[in-house]
């Protein structure tokens, strides 16, 4: 337990080290989440559209 407290204190720099890692997680993780969700949403919509109009798959262009 004491080891853990000592570790998280980061030699007195906890207030700088942990926010730095948190910012990286939030910004990069947020970017990943946003990219993946938009991608999955587009894939789903394409599937729905193609199911609704089975004959139109080739006729789109």
């Amino acid at each position: 337990m004491e080891n853990l407290t000592h570790y998280f204190a980061m030699g007195g720099y906890a207030a700088f080290v942990w926010p730095a890692y948190a910012v990286a997680l939030i910004v990069l993780g947020g970017m990943a989440l946003q990219s993946l969700r938009a991608y999955w949403r587009n894939l789903r919509q394409l599937e729905t559209l193609q199911q609704e109009r089975p004959g139109r798959r080739r006729g789109a262009r």
Partner: peptide, 18 residues
């Protein structure tokens, strides 16, 4: 992921336009 997403989005747009 993003490039694929954008290509799918373009396909969606042209399908809807058609």
């Amino acid at each position: 992921v993003r490039i694929r997403s954008a290509i799918v989005a373009r396909k969606l747009r042209s399908l809807r336009l058609a």
